[in-house]
């Protein structure tokens, strides 16, 4: 093949691959970023949760609670208990309720009140039905808000 005809064959291939990269790889994600930052800044930046005026984590990422006064997330260091992501923000309702006696004895908050608080923050895998679970960070922030005197220095 002579040079010009080879160029005629390869030009669409080369030009279209560059053009598609610019459109799909740059224009598209940057457009979505721009619109998202303007329309949904909270979600677009990782659904950051505030406590006492500063960001303490994301609603969707395990906050790593270890103190006995707080509800704790899944034990991600044990492979047979760990989630797939390693940062599962949720625990089952029964897991949360099983932690109530520990929190009650560590803080002095009556167990029935803690049970009620847990139940008030239930979510379900099928919205209104399915398996109940709680978001650990959401629950602990509610705990701090409801019993500020038991959590000095947090609120």
């Amino acid at each position: 093949m002579s040079k010009p005809s080879r160029w005629k064959t390869y030009r669409p291939v080369i030009a279209l691959s560059i053009l598609s990269m610019l459109v799909c790889g740059l224009a598209y994600p940057l457009l979505i970023t721009g619109v998202s930052q303007a329309a949904f800044p909270y979600q677009a930046n990782g659904s950051q949760v505030q406590l006492g005026g500063r960001a303490v984590g994301s609603y969707y990422i395990d906050n790593g609670f270890t103190f006995p006064i707080f509800f704790q997330g899944r034990n991600e260091t044990n492979p047979l208990a760990a989630s797939a992501s390693g940062v599962d923000p949720d625990i089952t309702l029964s897991d949360a309720l099983s932690q109530v006696p520990r929190i009650s004895s560590a803080t002095g908050i009556p167990a029935p009140s803690l049970d009620a608080l847990v139940k008030a923050h239930e979510h379900w895998t099928l919205w209104v039905t399915g398996d109940p679970y709680v978001n650990v960070l959401e629950l602990n922030l509610a705990l701090i808000a409801a019993y500020p005197s038991s959590y000095p220095g947090y609120a």
Partner: peptide, 28 residues
């Protein structure tokens, strides 16, 4: 855009470092 509205991030601003409720360092 629907995914962002439902909670999936979309930013090019870099990973975010925060102090957790208990005071540990966490990278989002």
């Amino acid at each position: 855009l629907v995914l962002v509205a439902l909670g999936v991030p979309q930013t090019i601003g870099g990973y975010v470092t925060v102090k957790t409720v208990e005071g540990a360092t966490q990278t989002l």
